[in-house]
Amino acid sequence: DETGKFLVLALYDYQEKSPREVTMKKGDILTLLNSTNKDWWKVEVNGRQGFVPAAYVKFL
């Protein structure tokens, strides 16, 4: 149950560059965990948590 969690859509592919980031593919649906930083949002994708560039995702 994803109640209270926001979902975001990956607009572009992103390859993680550090262990704190996660890789996503364009079209992936991600669970948004934290968006307090304007540049990097914490998400969960494929069972992994990490950061992606905020400009690469949008709210569903």
Rank of each mutant, 00 (worst) to 15 (best):
residue 17 K to P: 04
residue 45 V to H: 15
residue 22 V to T: 05
residue 31 T to L: 14
residue 3 T to M: 11
residue 56 Y to L: 15
residue 9 L to C: 08
residue 26 K to H: 06
residue 41 W to I: 09
residue 21 E to N: 05
residue 43 V to M: 02
residue 55 A to W: 07
residue 19 P to F: 10
residue 20 R to D: 15
residue 21 E to R: 03
residue 28 D to N: 06
residue 9 L to M: 15
residue 60 L to D: 06
residue 19 P to D: 15
residue 7 L to K: 11
residue 30 L to P: 01
residue 38 K to N: 14
residue 17 K to W: 03
residue 12 Y to W: 12
residue 46 N to T: 06
residue 9 L to W: 07
residue 17 K to I: 07
residue 7 L to S: 09
residue 8 V to R: 01
residue 16 E to W: 04
residue 29 I to Q: 06
residue 3 T to K: 09
residue 46 N to R: 14
residue 53 P to L: 03
residue 17 K to Q: 15
residue 16 E to V: 06
residue 10 A to M: 02
residue 21 E to Y: 05
residue 10 A to H: 02
residue 44 E to Y: 06
residue 34 N to S: 13
residue 10 A to K: 01
residue 59 F to Y: 12
residue 37 N to C: 08
residue 48 R to Y: 06
residue 20 R to E: 15
residue 41 W to H: 03
residue 15 Q to T: 15
residue 40 W to M: 06
residue 13 D to N: 09
residue 18 S to I: 05
residue 37 N to G: 11
residue 50 G to W: 02
residue 16 E to I: 05
residue 15 Q to K: 11
residue 29 I to T: 07
residue 11 L to I: 12
residue 23 T to I: 03
residue 37 N to M: 09
residue 59 F to W: 10
residue 47 G to M: 05
residue 55 A to G: 12
residue 22 V to K: 01
residue 35 S to E: 06
residue 39 D to A: 11
residue 59 F to I: 15
residue 53 P to D: 01
residue 38 K to H: 11
residue 18 S to T: 14
residue 21 E to M: 04
residue 60 L to K: 06
residue 3 T to V: 15
residue 37 N to L: 08
residue 2 E to R: 05
residue 60 L to M: 13
residue 31 T to F: 12
residue 14 Y to P: 01
residue 47 G to V: 02
residue 51 F to K: 03
residue 20 R to A: 14
residue 56 Y to N: 05
residue 43 V to K: 00
residue 30 L to C: 09
residue 29 I to W: 06
residue 53 P to V: 02
residue 36 T to W: 10
residue 33 L to F: 04
residue 43 V to P: 00
residue 56 Y to R: 05
residue 24 M to C: 06
residue 36 T to N: 15
residue 10 A to P: 01
residue 34 N to A: 09
residue 49 Q to G: 07
residue 8 V to Y: 08
residue 1 D to M: 13
residue 3 T to C: 10
residue 54 A to K: 07
residue 4 G to V: 13
residue 21 E to W: 03
residue 58 K to D: 11
residue 46 N to A: 10
residue 33 L to E: 02
residue 18 S to Y: 07
residue 35 S to V: 09
residue 54 A to S: 15
residue 3 T to D: 12
residue 52 V to K: 00
residue 4 G to P: 12
residue 2 E to G: 14
residue 21 E to G: 11
residue 39 D to R: 13
residue 11 L to F: 04
residue 50 G to I: 03
residue 24 M to D: 00
residue 10 A to S: 05
residue 40 W to Q: 03
residue 42 K to F: 15
residue 28 D to S: 06
residue 1 D to I: 14
residue 51 F to G: 01
residue 37 N to W: 07
residue 24 M to H: 00
residue 35 S to Q: 11
residue 16 E to A: 14
residue 39 D to E: 11
residue 43 V to S: 00
residue 17 K to H: 09
residue 18 S to D: 14
residue 16 E to D: 05
residue 54 A to R: 10
residue 10 A to N: 01
residue 17 K to G: 08
residue 4 G to M: 11
residue 9 L to H: 06
residue 32 L to A: 03
residue 10 A to T: 03
residue 13 D to F: 03
residue 11 L to A: 07
residue 52 V to T: 01
residue 27 G to V: 01
residue 23 T to Y: 04
residue 32 L to P: 01
residue 6 F to N: 13
residue 60 L to A: 08
residue 25 K to D: 04
residue 7 L to P: 04
residue 35 S to P: 06
residue 25 K to N: 09
residue 46 N to I: 04
residue 54 A to W: 02
residue 9 L to N: 03
residue 23 T to W: 04
residue 16 E to R: 12
residue 5 K to Q: 14
residue 56 Y to G: 07
residue 21 E to S: 06
residue 2 E to M: 12
residue 27 G to M: 03
residue 43 V to W: 00
residue 24 M to Y: 01
residue 29 I to H: 06
residue 51 F to W: 13
residue 51 F to T: 03
residue 52 V to Q: 00
residue 14 Y to D: 00
residue 8 V to N: 01
residue 37 N to E: 11
residue 14 Y to E: 01
residue 6 F to H: 15
residue 54 A to E: 03
residue 28 D to W: 08
residue 15 Q to C: 08
residue 57 V to R: 00
residue 38 K to L: 08
residue 42 K to E: 15
residue 36 T to G: 10
residue 28 D to L: 04
residue 38 K to P: 13
residue 54 A to V: 06
residue 36 T to R: 10
residue 23 T to K: 04
residue 58 K to M: 13
residue 8 V to T: 04
residue 53 P to A: 02
residue 15 Q to I: 14
residue 31 T to G: 06
residue 30 L to F: 06
residue 55 A to Y: 09
residue 24 M to F: 10
